[in-house]
Every structure is written in structure tokens, then in C-alpha cells.
């Protein structure tokens, strides 16, 4: 089976001319099917930039980046938008839509699938909310949920469409230690059960044990890999 993520000689720089500053240098990395990979490293080492490139949120500059069988080098905006639909994102902040209930927020990840019916989408959203333990809060708006509950809704939204890849950037940073650990472990368990690979950026040493592999970055390069 093909690797969901395969990077070769990836280079990325911010700015132009004299202000040009390389952030990623000759980076090579793969994520295997169903694998949970944690990305660590000092601040400014380029972890977030790498994640936005893999997530097709940013246009590539140089090198090769195959994600879910799609080469992102030279991909058009429309091709990148299409690929994003097959990736589940979890951000540091939940970024839920405040005017929608938890269930409607989760269903938003399914509305781009024009073959599904409204009932179908809401049913799948309910099932996903049950899986993250929020059955009783399906009709609650995010403003009335706790931080941990909101992040669990965000996890449900990222996973409900059965993405081929989950990308998360410090998903525990806005949560207290225990809540953060619970959310990440829940996400790992759900992804493992469905064979979805995870690439997760974190500074939190206490969640390193959920990983199949920990990749440390430094100054835009892979510094070491701990299996």
C-alpha cells in the first residue's frame, strides 16, 4: 500500500530577494498507512509550515510532496481545495462556527459531498459525536461547551468524513494537561480503529507515548527519528 504522505527534497522559503529566508531545507519524510507520527522541535523550526504544505493550505515551491496519491508540486488552487476535502484538520483553537450546534458543525465536514442527504449527514454527525462522548451535547452551540468539549467536537468534525489523513498542530495547547491528554488519546484511538494516519505537531512531552514514531525537526531539517 502506498504511503499517504511522501516528501522528497522539499524546500520552502518565506520572503523574496534579500529578505528571502529558507524555512524548510531538503526535507524528506514519509507517513505510512495507519501510522501515528508526532513532529517535535524548537519554535521556528518549520513544523507548522511543513504541516500547511502537506495539508495543501499553501502552494509548494520546490521538491516533491505526494499526499494521498496526489503530487502537490505545481498543483492548481482547485486541485488543492479538492485534496483538502480528504484531509481532517485539527487546529490549536477549535474554530467551530459559533452559530451552529455541535451536530451542525460536525455535519459541515460532510456538506461538500453532494451525494449525501441531509438526514444521512446528521445521522453520521450524531454517530461521530457519540464516539467522542458528546451525545448529550449534540444540539448545544460551542459557546455553551467547555474547552475540552469544543476540541472533541473539532476532532469529530475532522474525522467524520473518514479522511485519508489527519493533520493536527498543537491540538492540546489551549487545554489543561489532563483534558489535552484525553482529547489526543481519544483522537488516536478513533483514528487507529479506522486505519487513518495522523501527523501531529506537539511540544507536550507527556503525549509522546501515543506515537508510533516521533520525528524531531531542527532548523528546517529532520534532526532525528525515534521509533
Amino acid at each position: 500500500m502506498e504511503s499517504p504522505v511522501r516528501l522528497r527534497g522539499l524546500e520552502y522559503a518565506f520572503g523574496e530577494g534579500a529578505l528571502r529566508r529558507p524555512v524548510l531545507r531538503d526535507l524528506t519524510l514519509s507517513v505510512e498507512p495507519g501510522e501515528v507520527v508526532l513532529l517535535t522541535g524548537p519554535s521556528g523550526s518549520g513544523k507548522t509550515t511543513l504541516l500547511t504544505l502537506i495539508g495543501a493550505l499553501r502552494a509548494m515551491q520546490q521538491g516533491s510532496c505526494m499526499v494521498l496519491g496526489k503530487e502537490l508540486m505545481g498543483a492548481t488552487e482547485a486541485e488543492r481545495v479538492g485534496l483538502r476535502r480528504r484531509i481532517g484538520f485539527i487546529f490549536q483553537h477549535h474554530n467551530l462556527l459559533g452559530f451552529l450546534t455541535a451536530r451542525q458543525n460536525v455535519a459541515m465536514a460532510l456538506e461538500l459531498d453532494t451525494d449525501s442527504t441531509e438526514q444521512d449527514r446528521l445521522d453520521r454527525a450524531s454517530a461521530m459525536l457519540e464516539a467522542v462522548g458528546l451525545t448529550d451535547y449534540a444540539d448545544t452551540v460551542p459557546g455553551k461547551l467547555s474547552g475540552g468539549q469544543r476540541q472533541r467536537v473539532a476532532v469529530a468534525r475532522a474525522l467524520v468524513a473518514h479522511p485519508g489523513l489527519i493533520l493536527a498542530d498543537e491540538p492540546t495547547a489551549a487545554l489543561d494537561r489532563q483534558t489535552g491528554q484525553d482529547v489526543v488519546r481519544l483522537m488516536r484511538d478513533l483514528a487507529k480503529r479506522n486505519g487513518m494516519p495522523i501527523l501531529l505537531v506537539t511540544h507536550d512531552p507527556r503525549i509522546l507515548d501515543i506515537a508510533d514514531r516521533v520525528v524531531a525537526m531542527e532548523d528546517g531539517r529532520i534532526a532525528e527519528t525515534v521509533v
Partner: peptide, 15 residues
């Protein structure tokens, strides 16, 4: 006031 939410929708694949 909802830029992060709109950006999230774009990240989710909304054109």
C-alpha cells in the same frame, strides 16, 4: 469578526 471560521471552512475544502 469570523475570519478564523471562514479560514477553517477553506481548510476543510470549501472553495
Amino acid at each position: 469578526t469570523h475570519l478564523p471560521e471562514y479560514a477553517t471552512l477553506k481548510a476543510m475544502g470549501y472553495s
